[in-house]
């Protein structure tokens, strides 16, 4: 079986999967879209009520949840759209300029 991690733009044709098939789930997780950010959301855990309203609104599945707690952003995938900040009813998210979480 050929794995996605072994496929890159230098892989010879003999080592690519036939027809461009992929045999694993969610290989896109290895791709960094965090570099796209021009603005960055910052999570203020102390203000968060864990209402989860922001979670389903994230187009990039970049707001992890575990054991009933909303966790800090997945910055490798967050594109900085600001939707989460817009829907959060509490002062738990603020947007800062630039792509880096400060």
């Amino acid at each position: 079986m050929i794995y996605a991690k072994d496929i890159n733009e230098r892989t010879p044709w003999q080592d690519l999967t036939p027809g461009g098939e992929i045999y694993e789930p969610g290989t896109a997780r290895d791709f960094d879209t965090g570099t796209w950010r021009t603005n960055t959301p910052i999570f203020h855990v102390e203000a968060c009520k864990h209402c989860m309203l922001c979670v389903p609104f994230c187009p990039d599945s970049a707001i992890p949840v575990k054991d009933g707690k909303r966790l800090d952003f997945d910055y490798m995938h967050c594109k900085g759209c600001g939707i989460c900040e817009d829907v959060c009813p509490f002062p738990a998210i603020t947007m800062v300029t630039g792509g880096v979480a400060k």
């Binding site: 892989t11 690519l16 461009g20 992929i22």
Partner: peptide
Amino acid sequence: ENPLAVGPYDVSAYYMEHKVQEAEA
């Protein structure tokens, strides 16, 4: 046992290689 994904968007870094595979087949 494992999922399969079929029919990707193939950028030019891969398309040619996939066509060579097809030609070899």
